[in-house]
């Protein structure tokens, strides 16, 4: 198959890393060649973070370039806007409606752009947005925003639901399996 390129963008601390590991593990179970490129270190401290997941018959570069992403999962609205030009024409943009002000906005040096979702939808008709934070809260743990978004994404793939769920079971800590699966299910149904 042609490679599938997925980007996870968000704010350090939102759980993009764990989500990308679930994606990578699922792709591997499907016997694809996989590369997952992560961000560690300084930008994890509340900075803008991006993780790349690529799979297919053969993957060379672990990075996704502008105009190459099939799917972008944005954990925060502004980050969707920051990375949108990585999406290819006809690509899918999944956006968490959560807003986290960056420091330049907090200090008044910059403005948080308005009507982000509207703007994205005007150029990418495959833009889907959900309030993953509220859904995660309802599921019982606001840290499961990542699984809500994985659920939303899983719905749009051909990969069986049970494979996703098994992978989540293998990836998250034992005592958090239930709440993560609930969040995945909620995201899946929201799609």
């Amino acid at each position: 198959m042609k490679n599938l390129n997925i980007m996870l963008v968000g704010v350090g601390g939102q759980g993009t890393l764990l989500a990308s590991r679930v994606l990578g593990a699922v792709a591997m179970k499907e016997s694809y060649d996989v590369k997952v490129s992560e961000v560690h270190g300084m930008s994890q401290r509340g900075g803008s973070v991006v993780t790349y997941v690529k799979f297919g018959d053969k993957v060379y570069s672990p990075l996704i370039e502008k105009g190459e992403a099939d799917i972008i999962i944005a954990f925060e609205k502004l980050e969707a806007l920051r990375w949108f030009d990585y999406l290819k024409e006809g690509g899918k943009m999944l956006v968490n409606e959560q807003k986290i002000n960056p420091m330049p906005v907090i200090t008044g040096k910059a403005k948080y752009p308005e009507r982000i979702l509207e703007k994205l939808k005007s150029v990418f008709k495959n833009t889907v947005s959900i309030d993953a934070l509220s859904i995660a809260k309802q599921c019982g743990n606001i840290k499961t925003v990542n699984m809500v978004l994985i659920g939303l994404m899983a719905k749009s793939t051909d990969i069986e639901k049970s494979i996703w769920m098994d992978t989540i079971r293998d990836t998250v800590p034992q005592k958090l399996v239930d709440v993560n699966l609930r969040a995945f299910e909620a995201g899946y149904c929201a799609g």
Partner: peptide, 12 residues
């Protein structure tokens, strides 16, 4: 695809 939007930086 062009969105003329200034995106504030998000430093750590």
């Amino acid at each position: 695809i062009i969105l003329n939007e200034s995106v504030p930086a998000r430093p750590p």
